[in-house]
């Protein structure tokens, strides 16, 4: 983030520096934008660093978005292929993360439009634990708890789920989430509030 601010100070055309405490913060590392610029100049190692940094969050965002592992892998490849393809024309206009997740978001929207809405559960996930009051045992194991959390997130409406995932996986602010999803800041806030309320209600027995 500091390197990002340094880029901004150099007058490279960034609109604003948004400081958000994120789990994907890379302190004392080269900023994403600098890595992308290096890759533009032909540095393949810079791309690899960029890829290693973002591959898992992007994959999880896609996987939680469509609930289809194979399709998520295809979309994942498409997103990174787009990054590679636009190497020559990429310009430093916004944060790299925002741009990357917008690519992923657009592919999810295309999937939704093609009526491939998430209807089935992930294949290799264990069965969802029933609510606490329906379970014979009062204690829920730690593994089940984690699966319950994932399942609850999976059960959110797509807009709320995307807002939640963009915050958790992309480490974005309200404004950045709005930029990626194409809505205003207040709409993002509202979606996140609803998502948190639903998750809290759903996971009240495990949290």
């Amino acid at each position: 983030m500091r390197a990002y601010a340094a880029l901004h100070d150099q007058g490279v055309g960034l609109e604003a520096t948004i400081t958000v405490a994120t789990p994907v913060e890379h302190r004392d590392e080269i900023a994403d934008e600098q890595l992308m610029q290096r890759y533009q100049r032909g540095d393949a190692a810079a791309f690899e660093t960029l890829y290693r940094r973002h591959r898992d969050p992007v994959y999880r965002y896609l996987l939680r978005g469509i609930s289809d592992r194979e399709r998520a892998q295809e979309l994942f490849q498409e997103v990174w292929a787009s990054v590679v393809r636009v190497r020559a024309t990429w310009e430093l206009r916004a944060r790299f993360t925002t741009w990357l997740y917008r690519l992923a978001h657009n592919r999810l929207v295309d999937e939704y439009r093609a009526a491939r809405l998430p209807t089935d559960t992930l294949e290799d996930e264990p069965a969802v634990a029933a609510p606490e009051h329906l379970q014979p045992e009062s204690a829920v194991s730690g593994q089940q708890r984690l699966h319950r959390v994932l399942q609850a997130v999976q059960g959110l409406p797509p807009e709320q789920r995307q807002a939640f995932l963009l915050k958790e996986e992309g480490g974005m602010s309200l404004e950045q989430i709005g930029e990626v999803t194409g809505v205003g800041r207040e709409t993002v806030k509202s979606r996140l509030r609803y998502a948190l309320a639903k998750l809290r209600l759903e996971l009240s027995d495990v949290l």
Binding site: P23, R60, R64, R145, L146, H147, V149, L150, V153, F164, K167, E168, E169, L196, L199, R200, L203, V206, L207
Partner: peptide, 9 residues
């Protein structure tokens, strides 16, 4: 909730 999600994912 966020912590639980990160732990699970």
């Amino acid at each position: 909730l966020g912590r639980a999600y990160r732990e699970a994912a």
